[in-house]
Design a protein around this nucleic acid. Sequence first.
DNA 1: TTTATTCATTGCAATATTACGATTAAAGGG
DNA 2: CCCTTTAATCGTAATATTGCAATGAATAAA
Lengths: 109, 109
Amino acid sequence: MGLAKTEIFTDKQNEIAQYAKVFGHPARVAILQYLFKLNACVCGDLVDEIGLAQPTISQHLKELKQVGLIKGNVEGTSVCYCIDADNWKKMKSVMSEFLNQDLDKKECC
Amino acid sequence: MGLAKTEIFTDKQNEIAQYAKVFGHPARVAILQYLFKLNACVCGDLVDEIGLAQPTISQHLKELKQVGLIKGNVEGTSVCYCIDADNWKKMKSVMSEFLNQDLDKKECC
DNA sequence: TTTATTCATTGCAATATTACGATTAAAGGG
DNA sequence: CCCTTTAATCGTAATATTGCAATGAATAAA
């Protein structure tokens, strides 16, 4: 069906999945890494930096914005993007809790 | 196209995206949480635990197995699943490096 | 041997994702 | 007022994902 049955899962599970889904494409990972590397806003060179067409980059930026991980700021004809630090921290805490589950004392096959 | 252009990204970026993609569905998150909660192998009650049909669960388990995060052990007619601790640690180190990028000193919009 | 149980696989329908050309909208420069 | 630049949006093709009914394979139980 291509449609996840989100209603049968907890809010937390859906939240983790939603964040993870955004990271689930290398272009979005690359965009975020670039934003981190620059220590500043990026005004448009993402299309040159990553090797994808402008509409494609724009679409990926939109998804990153929708989950709140980046902010965009209009500056003349161009738009400046950067990491939303507060939301990144929130996301990190949700994902860390999931990733750091206790691996000890597992009676395993 | 529905097909990611993985060749234009680094191995690390593709690796992060591949792990994240697996976490990008709440059913797989739920399966992993259940495996963690039990502290032991799970032999088949995943279908009852999660509310999805058996073939659907089987498919999600396959994807988790393919990235190495779980192991399956045949035991008579049933199969026991559990977290692959070594690979989980490897995944965690890759994901943590990505999530824990430096948020300070960002001149932002 | 027959039957039941458990799980994987196959096949398919519905929907989502990825990518990009074409177009549009908005702001600036002349 | 045009023209350029920049980025969002639209439309569409190709592919991927999700979910399940039906079926198959393997072992256990009778």
